[in-house]
């Protein structure tokens, strides 16, 4: 049971070594699905509280970094009575092995879910090679 409890909780991101944060707030690791399609790689991340203006995506060499800034909506004049989740930004980086067509990366956010579509470069797309009988 202890293991399953862990899974449903937000995980705080480990601080990136040698990089100091300028904002003093919690940073969480978003849960992601990474789906490989024939012509693209799709990264889907749960980032509740983030909208399209708060997402920052960078692809440097083969490292894809996503950062989601949360502008917390706190009920005015209310006291926090019970807290079972923390509020903060989201950050995560991935190493992408395939060649990506950088100019065609697309990202969208809907209901707190970020979806990044990384189209594979033509060269990297799997080609089927027919073997001719000799």
């Amino acid at each position: 049971m202890a293991d399953t409890t862990k899974e449903v909780q937000k995980k705080e991101a480990a601080p990136v070594e040698q990089v100091e944060r300028t904002r003093s707030r919690n940073i969480y690791t978003p849960d992601v699905d990474i789906l490989e399609k024939t012509d693209s790689i799709v990264v889907i991340a749960d980032m509740p509280g983030v909208d399209e203006s708060g997402v920052d995506i960078t692809l440097e060499k083969n490292v894809l970094s996503i950062y989601g800034t949360v502008d917390p909506e706190i009920p005015e004049k209310h006291e926090l009575i019970h807290a079972s989740y923390g509020i903060g930004d989201y950050q995560r980086s991935f190493t992408i092995s395939d060649e990506i067509d950088r100019d065609k990366i697309e990202a969208s956010v809907k209901d707190g879910v970020l979806r990044v579509i990384l189209p594979k470069a033509k060269m990297a797309q799997t080609r089927k090679i027919t073997v001719k009988a000799g």
Binding site: V8, I81, A83, Y85
Partner: peptide
């Protein structure tokens, strides 16, 4: 239930 339905989703409660 699995996943443990009582624990998900996490809630915060604010009050006056």
């Amino acid at each position: 239930t699995y996943p443990p339905s009582g624990e998900f989703p996490a809630v915060n409660v604010w009050g006056t």
